[in-house]
Design a protein around this nucleic acid. Structure first.
Length: 909
RNA sequence: GCGCGGGUGGCGAAAUGGUAGACGCGCUAGUUUCAGGAGCUAGUGGGGUAAAACCUGUGUGAGUUCGAGUCUCAUCUCGCGCACCA
């Protein structure tokens, strides 16, 4: 039998599907392991070879864990709500559901060819009403909860209502509560709910006709579509993610994620510990206390002015009549600018004097109040004290408007720029004089608190998540408006199904407003839908218990599977999905619906696979193409050529001529009889003709080769270009592997006893494979296989005792070929559940270790020692050897260093 | 500006402080079948030699060590993330 990968692969894929080989059991008493991929958005373009990289890695690990005796949950689904399907619907009028299911079918077909071990019975789709019922359910729970700062967790809103009735809460007394109308009560509670409706400055994208979250905007453009985004005040549904900022930050430490990813989240959460200080202000005789936030109270003696954000509510009351016109004009200017312009103009300084003054609470000094866009309304209190000597932004502002700069650290030079460092001794600072800055910070904080001028405060950059989208293809909100009051739908009405609408074209109003009878008991239903991250925030719970229609996940089932042990996906979700999921999970945990407060214990970011584009060089004004090495001789134009016409950078001339009509009469200037193409690493994309389709690789080389090669390409977490060159090597490996079993189609495996050399090769491999897989170092594991294979082929090894474990070891990587060989070896079960530990236990320890012997660090000879010998025994043996005496040659042995199992170094003098 | 990673052959890359460059690609030579983008064997950091020996070599400079690609400090450089966040 020859290695016919096509038949082998389709045969075993059909077998696995028919026998549900990878069906995860319920609580079977086995230890569980939950391996999850970030589920894909099924786009119309299908998969390219970059997409399965993470899936292959997680599949290898899943199969490895199964061999080790774990009950593995390894599911897959689709993040199926989203903009592209809707935009396609706008263009074509086709229902997004239809596009989506066509794309899903295509994805499934491609995934199946790679031989993944998913339990497809647990497939989920976020656009499926049975699924989004639970997204809506969670929203209702959030609507019905508030964040209790005393307990530091979410509690049912009924508890807050209880407090309000009894003793009042916050600014609201029990009396006021009792007298409040239904609408007023709703407004009060809205300030506390985890899911709440509120006016906020949002990223409005006119091009998409919807609001976007911060992580959906990059450089002032929408991530999807690249349309300009502007700031606009709107009433929107929001999630009180900010209430969880502290916990989201703290529990990062307990997670087994990469440091860089944790750091990204820390930056995004943006904790800063500082002080709120109250400054009294005077505007045309009227006094008004203004609270500012600073991390450097110690610099308060250097304050020479204050600045308000243009959007701050204080602006109106602190503008003098004389400055009113100037201020209004300035604010108008700022509003006109989009976020994009504000970012691109970071170097220009603008601002206007408000006409009023503040009083420095420590010095009693009168200081002017300015308004400038460099102060943000959404952070801190929207007002700052400016210390130009020690803050670069304040410095630039002071320079521009001629405001005084007072240094308060001894000997610092502020003639050219501000002195931002946190070191030195204080001066010009009253009671802080002479203190070291670090000491002064604490002392100043204490002082401000003691005198009642302010208090310590921790601020976070993390904002609440805006949760409404004015779109069609998303989850409808289970909310209706009863006399204008947002009211939750009863749980029994879930799922609230997405209605049909007659046209998807944007009209300025939300698409759902077009739906007929979009009402509940005669009251209008909410017309916006939920954003993309809604469905992906808790999907990993549904895989545990996908068909449960009574609960998100059954308590016992959840207690068994707990949380995701290994999550693999791209780092681009660091500040989106991965924050929202953690928030969502902690919320469910607070209310006791799930048993773990973090969703993903270990997380690996696979790198991107970039494309490797090929170029041909056309001599300008002709239809003649020169090979890359000769292009310097001519004036040429570089043209992307479809990489399918190129093999190992050599162009297939006939295929090239047939590619496009204008090349049909192309002429070539060759080097050494071949046309060599140029190349470059670029993003994998259609327009660069460098997309590699996994289907094509499966056709030419087979899925096993694809899997091995993607892993062999380099470290998993690193980005690397796809380079088809090396794939032959991996394919060769599989062919050779096959030849250990079949020689010219004849079965050659024997039951002979294995020799020591053969055993040694096998044992080395077993050791290496176990270590490397646990560290996700799959490229080196495959190398180890290649070494073992070379050694065994050289020994002409064809013994079952060696080959059977080899098949098991390779099976996570190349499941099809190993399944076929396992069957050929006479097993009637599948290799997936081969008793790995039993096979591996058979491996005996090597008897001897070969030590290199060094003199003063230079290797001279090697010596074989029993593995069990202690360092002292090794030393004694080496000292007494004839060879040693030869190298000592009259010198003294200072000492002998024996590193067990590694090396012997003899230090001479 | 702040933070996080990296810099090793022609290329992708390996090296618990212990023989640097495993493994693969590419290249060179030989060989076998030739229908192959095939198989097999050997070589492949640089210098050096008839062949060895030997010298040198992990961005740069210092340090710790019997011994450093690996640890420490400084420096150059590339990539990524965040950023008027007070």
């Amino acid at each position: 039998m020859e290695y016919d990968f096509k038949n082998i692969e389709s045969k075993w894929q059909a077998y696995w599907a028919a026998h549900k080989t990878f069906k995860a059991e319920g609580n079977s008493g086995k230890p569980k392991y939950y391996v999850l991929d970030m589920f894909p958005y099924p786009s119309g373009a299908g998969l390219h070879v970059g997409h399965p990289l993470g899936y292959i890695a997680s599949d290898i690990f899943s199969r490895y864990k199964r061999l080790k005796g774990f009950n593995v949950l390894h599911p897959m689904g689709y993040d199926a709500f989203g903009l592209p399907a809707e935009q396609y619907a706008i263009q074509t009028g086709q229902h997004p559901e239809k596009t989506t299911s066509i794309n899903i079918a295509r994805y499934r077909e491609q995934l199946d060819r790679i031989g993944f071990s998913y339990d497809w019975d647990r497939e989920i789709r976020t656009c499926d009403p049975d699924f989004y019922k639970w997204t809506q359910w969670a929203f209702l729970k959030m609507f019905d909860s508030w964040y209790d700062p005393d307990a530091d967790k979410a509690r049912p809103i009924s508890e807050l209502v209880g407090k309000l009735e009894k003793e009042g809460y916050g600014d609201v007394t029990a009396e006021q509560w009792a007298k409040a109308s239904e609408k007023e009560k709703s407004d009060i509670l809205m300030q506390y709910r985890i899911a709440y409706q509120g006016e906020t400055s949002v990223n409005w994208c006119e091009g998409l006709g919807t609001v976007l979250a911060n992580d959906e905007v990059k450089d002032g453009l929408s991530v999807r579509g690249g349309f300009p985004v502007e700031q606009k005040k709107m009433t929107q549904w929001q999630l009180r993610v900010s209430a969880y900022a502290g916990r989201l930050l703290d529990s990062l430490d307990s997670l087994n994620w990469t440091e860089s990813l944790k750091e990204m989240q820390r930056n995004w959460i943006g904790k800063s510990e500082g002080t709120e200080v109250v400054f009294n202000t005077v505007c045309e005789g009227k006094e008004l206390p203004v609270t500012i936030f600073t991390t450097r109270v110690d610099t308060i003696f250097g304050v020479t002015f204050m600045v308000l954000a243009p959007e701050s509510e204080l602006v109106a009351s602190l503008t003098s009549s004389g400055q009113k016109k100037a201020v209004e004009e300035y604010i108008k200017e700022v509003r006109k600018k989009t976020e994009r312009e504000r970012i691109s103009e970071t170097k220009t300084v603008s601002g206007v004097f408000s006409g009023s003054y503040g009083i420095n609470p420590l010095t009693g000094e009168k200081i002017p109040i300015w308004i400038s866009e460099y102060v943000l309304a959404g952070y801190g209190t929207g007002a700052i004290m400016a210390v130009p000597a020690h803050d670069s932004r304040d410095y630039a502002f002071a320079r521009k408007f001629g405001l005084p700069i007072v240094p308060i650290i001894e000997g610092c030079d502020v003639s050219e720029s501000s002195f931002d460092a946190k070191e030195g001794k204080m001066c010009n600072s009253g009671f802080l004089n002479g203190l070291d800055v670090k000491v002064a910070i604490e002392k100043a904080k204490d002082y401000v608190e003691e005198k009642g001028l302010g208090r310590r405060k921790t601020n976070y950059r993390l904002r609440d998540a805006i949760f409404s989208r004015q779109r069609y293809w998303g989850e409808p909100f289970p909310i209706y408006y009863k006399d204008g009051i947002p009211t939750p739908l009863p749980e029994s009405e879930l799922p609230l199904r997405l209605p049909e609408i007659d046209s998807y074209k944007p009209t300025g109003e939300a698409p759902l407003a077009r739906a007929k009878d979009w009402t509940y008991k005669g009251y209008p239903l909410e017309t916006s839908t939920m954003p993309g991250f809604a469905g992906s925030s808790a999907y990993y719970f549904r895989y545990m218990d996908p068909r449960n229609d009574k609960a998100l996940v059954d308590k016992e089932v959840n207690a068994y599977w707990k949380s995701v042990d290994l999550y693999i996906g791209g780092s681009e979700h660091a500040t989106g999905h991965l924050i929202y999921s953690r928030f969502w999970n902690k919320f469910l945990y607070d209310l006791g619906y799930v048993c773990e407060d973090e969703p993903f214990r270990k997380l690996i970011n696979q790198g991107m696979i970039q494309g490797r584009s090929n170029f041909v060089y056309r001599i300008v004004g002709t239809n003649k193409f020169v090979s890359c090495g000769l292009k310097g001789k001519y004036d040429t134009t570089e043209i992307h050529v479809d990489i399918n016409l190129v093999h190992n950078d050599k162009l297939d001339l006939e295929a090239f001529k047939a590619w496009r009509p204008e090349f049909s009469d192309a002429e070539f200037e060759l080097e050494n009889g071949e046309y060599i193409c140029g190349w470059a690493v670029e993003k994998m994309s259609k327009s660069m003709y460098n997309v590699v389709n996994p289907d094509d690789i499966c056709d030419t080389y087979g899925a096993d080769t694809l899997r091995l090669y993607e892993m062999f390409l380099g470290p998993l977490e690193q980005s690397k270009p796809w380079d088809t060159k090396g794939i032959d090597g991996v394919n060769r490996f599989l062919k050779k592997f096959w030849r250990l079993f079949y020689d010219r189609g004849e079965w050659i495996v024997t039951d002979e006893k294995a020799g020591p050399e053969e055993l040694k090769s096998l044992h080395k491999l077993i050791k290496k494979e176990q270590e490397d897989i646990e560290n996700f170092s799959f490229n080196t594991t495959i190398s180890a296989f290649m070494i073992a294979l070379n050694e065994l082929s050289a020994l002409n090894c064809c013994k079952r005792e060696i080959l059977e474990p080899l098949v098991i070891l390779l099976s996570p990587f190349a499941p099809h070929i190993t399944e076929e060989l396992w069957y050929a070896l006479g097993h009637d079960d599948t290799v997936t559940y081969a008793r790995f530990p039993e096979f591996i236990a058979a491996y005996a320890a090597e008897d001897n270790v070969t030590y290199p012997v060094q003199f003063n660090g230079k290797m001279r000879f090697t010596v074989d020692m029993p593995k069990s010998a202690t360092p002292a025994e090794v030393e004694a043996a080496v000292r007494g050897m004839e060879q040693t005496q030869k190298y000592v040659d009259g010198l003294n042995i200072v000492k002998v260093i024996v590193v067990p199992g590694r090396i012997i170094n003899i230090v001479l003098k």
